[in-house]
Design a protein around this nucleic acid. Sequence first.
DNA 1: ATTTGTGCAAATCGTTTGCATCTGA
DNA 2: TCAGATGCAAACGATTTGCACAAAT
Lengths: 137, 137
Amino acid sequence: MDLLSETSISEQLRQAGLRPTRQRLVLGTLLFGQGDRHVSAELLHAEAVAAGERVSLATVYNTLHQFKRAGLVRELAIGGSKTFFDTNVSNHNHFFIENEARLVDIPSEGIRVAGLPEPPDGMKITHVDVVVRLSQK
Amino acid sequence: MDLLSETSISEQLRQAGLRPTRQRLVLGTLLFGQGDRHVSAELLHAEAVAAGERVSLATVYNTLHQFKRAGLVRELAIGGSKTFFDTNVSNHNHFFIENEARLVDIPSEGIRVAGLPEPPDGMKITHVDVVVRLSQK
DNA sequence: ATTTGTGCAAATCGTTTGCATCTGA
DNA sequence: TCAGATGCAAACGATTTGCACAAAT
C-alpha cells in the first residue's frame, strides 16, 4: 500500500466530510491508485480481500455510494446485472464487451451526438449516455 | 380480446416455432395490440391479471425471453433495477425518465452519432445505444 | 402418445438494511 | 466521550429454475 497516495486520499475524504477510516483508505487506494477503473462492488471486495485487508461486502457497497455522493466516482447503470463504478468522473462514453460484461472507456473527444430531440414538456436532459456494445468478431 | 389480432399473432408465433398457447396469445395481444410499448415483466403480468387472465409471473418471464429469441421484442437493460422489453425492434433510441424509471422512444431519424472510434482488436460493434436521461425541470 | 408449455414454490443473485459492536477525533 | 463506521446476518426485489401437472399437435 502506497503511503503517499494514502495521504492524498485521506485528504480527499476529509474534504468530502468522510472520516479516513482504514477500510475507506484501502478501497480508495485500490480505486484511485491505478488510473481509471471500472469496478463492481464484488470485484473491489475481492481485491481488498486478496490484498489481505478485512472489509465486508456491505461496507464496500456503502463506501462506493459514499464516494459517489462525494463525486469521487460515477455509477454506471449500463446493463447486465451488476452495477459498475467508474473512477473517471469526466464526460466520456463506454464500450461494453458483451460476453465479458466488461467496460472500456471511449475518450470524450471521440463521440459526438447530433440531432437530439427536445425533451418532453417540463423535463430537462441530465445526461446523454452512449454505449457501444461489442462482441467477438 | 381482439380475435383478428390474436389470429395474426398466432401466425407469428407459429413461424417462430412457438406453439400458440393461451398465455402466449394473451401476452402477445397485450404487447402487440397497441403500438410500440416498453414493458417490464411485472407490468405485463399485472396487465394480464387485470384482464382476467390466469398467467404466472414465471411464464411471463419465460415468454418474454422466447419472444426475444424469436426477434419479436428487444430487451433493454438500460439501468434502474428492472429490465424492459421493447416491442419496437427497429433501430431507435430512448429517453429514460429517471424518477419514474420509464422509457420513451426517440424516433430513429432524430439522433446521429459521429466519431465512433475503432473497436479494439478482434471485436465488432453489435449495437450503439444512446440513452438520454431526463429529470423534472 | 409424445412433445412442449405452465404454475408453483424454492433457489439464486445482486444489493440493502437493522442493529450490536467498534473506532477515530 | 460519542458521533460516526463497520460487520454480520437477515431482508429484499428481480429473475431463474426444478419438477409435477396440463395442454397442444
